[in-house]
Nucleic acid binder design. Structure first.
Length: 288
DNA sequence: CTTGGGTCCTGTGCGC
DNA sequence: TGCGCACAGGACCCAA
């Protein structure tokens, strides 16, 4: 589900209400997600202060006051919601009236010292939660091979064409490789290629020069606009308050097979193909 | 090294 | 109404 813009939207919601707070209660409700929780998970977190919450690619990083870092990934269906403390008499969003954190797919619960409760929910359990040390964060196996942050200074046309050099796979499949650029997923790969007018079927290595410029620019633009819109909500995604994102209304191609191309209006319209077992949407007339 | 395919898991929507 | 299949914002692991 969540790609970079959705994870960034969640990060902002969490940071606003959890940074500076102390974890007073942590509940682990099953032994594993995509991988096992670390040993003594709840005990190692309880009493720790959350100093900051950052993001790398699609990973959320909770930096704690003992130099440990809580790493979270939302997989395809993960979400994190915040619920006001019991004394605050606010309707808990998405909680359907019951105690937050007790739902069928609520896998971990984090309560802080003002009573706010963060609930990690993941229907498909492709997400993960683990702990590491701040000193070795960059070398963590989950993070060490990630490519540049697309919104950062180390990403641009040169970095992109460098990462694509010699690769015979299609540009669409290459963009999903987190080593090429970190945080792009299926939706934004399709949307960026449309904006750059590049065919998703084009061989990745044939992108350098002007195409790499257009594509790097398109990736930054589409991700930036999606972050501003609070991400995209197709089926499960909500922000930490249970609110939907609205960038899905601005998709040019994703999920729009058969509709006229918003750019050329061509007769065949938007096509859907399958690449590496994922749907790709594009306009064969505009994208070359 | 790259690449393609299968896999994890639950849920929904469609055609028959 | 029921059943089976395709598909869903991701990313590992393994064989070739």
């Amino acid at each position: 589900m969540p790609e970079l813009p959705e994870v960034e939207t969640v990060r902002r919601g969490l940071a606003e209400r959890l940074e500076g707070r102390k974890l007073t209660r942590v509940v682990q409700r099953r032994p594993d997600l995509r991988q096992p929780f670390p040993p003594d998970f709840a005990a190692r977190l309880t009493g720790r202060r959350i100093e900051s919450i950052s993001r790398r690619a699609k990973y959320l990083l909770w930096h704690l006051d003992d130099h440990s870092v809580l790493i979270m990934h939302l997989g395809m269906s993960g979400r994190i919601t915040l619920h006001a403390g019991a004394g605050h008499a606010g309707a808990a969003p998405g909680g359907s009236g019951q105690t937050p954190g007790t739902g069928r797919h609520d896998h971990a619960v984090f309560e802080v010292d003002d009573g706010t409760v963060a609930v990690f929910n993941d229907q498909r359990r492709f997400g993960l939660i683990t702990l590491t040390r701040a000193e070795s964060l960059a070398e963590h196996p989950l993070l060490r091979d990630l490519g540049p942050e697309p919104m950062g200074n180390s990403f641009g046309p040169e970095a992109l064409s460098g990462a694509l050099a010699g690769r015979k796979t299609s540009i669409k499949v290459a963009l999903l490789d987190q080593k090429v650029v970190a945080g792009v997923g299926n939706i934004y790969a399709c949307e960026a290629l449309f904006r750059a007018k590049i065919s998703p079927r084009r061989t990745a290595a044939t992108i350098p020069g002007k195409r790499a410029q257009r594509l790097a620019q398109a990736i930054r633009e589409v991700l930036g606009e999606a972050i501003e819109a609070g991400g995209s909500s197709l089926r499960d995604f909500t922000d930490t308050n249970g609110e939907l994102g609205y960038f899905q209304h601005r998709f040019a191609v994703y999920g729009r097979q058969g509709e006229p191309c918003p750019s050329c209006g061509g007769p065949k319209g938007i096509q859907r193909i399958v690449q590496a077992a994922r749907s790709t949407f594009f306009c064969p007339r505009c994208q070359r």
